[in-house]
């Protein structure tokens, strides 16, 4: 990289209006200095360098940005980081424990429940949230409860197969 160019550039980064937001992401406390208009999604992807959480629409229409916030699945694109001060966030990077994949992650691989992989983190986080909610019992209910996560590759049947397998095993 050309160092001289970086040094010549005057970076007048606007630090006004920032506040410190404490987020415990995947068990690690992060103190982020962000402006109020930074979305939780951008705080995770850009400010915390956890790019596993995806931006597919930025408007709550695709589900790719799904994370678990205090145990519940939410869309991080429709939340501001400042609103979640003090919250515990689990992203896709925090789903496996000590390198062991979560059963859903394993099931997704076995069932080929993804193609391009871009909706996958959101599908998995959403499915974990759904299983914890415990409101979906039949395959039809699981499909309805997972309908906030779009998959453009058309891996739908494999995704639901993977989730049903884990759901039935954990019952």
């Amino acid at each position: 990289m050309e160092k001289e160019n970086q040094n010549n550039q005057i970076h007048h980064y606007d630090e006004s209006n920032t506040s410190v937001v404490n987020l415990t992401i995947n068990g690690n406390l992060k103190q982020l200095k962000v402006q109020p208009w930074v979305s939780l999604l951008d705080a995770i992807r850009d400010h915390s360098n956890l790019t596993g959480t995806k931006k597919g629409c930025d408007h709550g229409q695709c589900g790719a940005c799904t994370v678990l916030c205090d145990g519940k699945r939410i869309l991080s694109c429709l939340s501001l980081a400042v609103m979640k001060d003090g919250s515990e966030i689990t992203t896709i990077e925090g789903i496996a424990t000590d390198g062991d994949l979560h059963p859903l992650q394993t099931a997704f691989i076995e069932h080929d429940a993804f193609q391009c992989g871009y909706c996958t983190p959101g599908q998995i986080c959403s499915a974990i949230g759904m299983l914890q909610e415990g409101k979906a019992h039949t395959r039809e209910e699981v499909k309805e409860q997972m309908s906030g996560n779009l998959c453009r590759c058309g891996a739908n049947t494999n995704i639901i197969d993977a989730i049903m397998e884990v759901k039935e095993k954990t019952l």
């Binding site: 709550g60 589900g63 869309l75 429709l78 959403s126 759904m130 909610e133 409860q145 906030g148």
Partner: peptide, 9 residues
Amino acid sequence: GASAQIRNS
């Protein structure tokens, strides 16, 4: 209405 994620927020 909406999706489970949106209803949670």
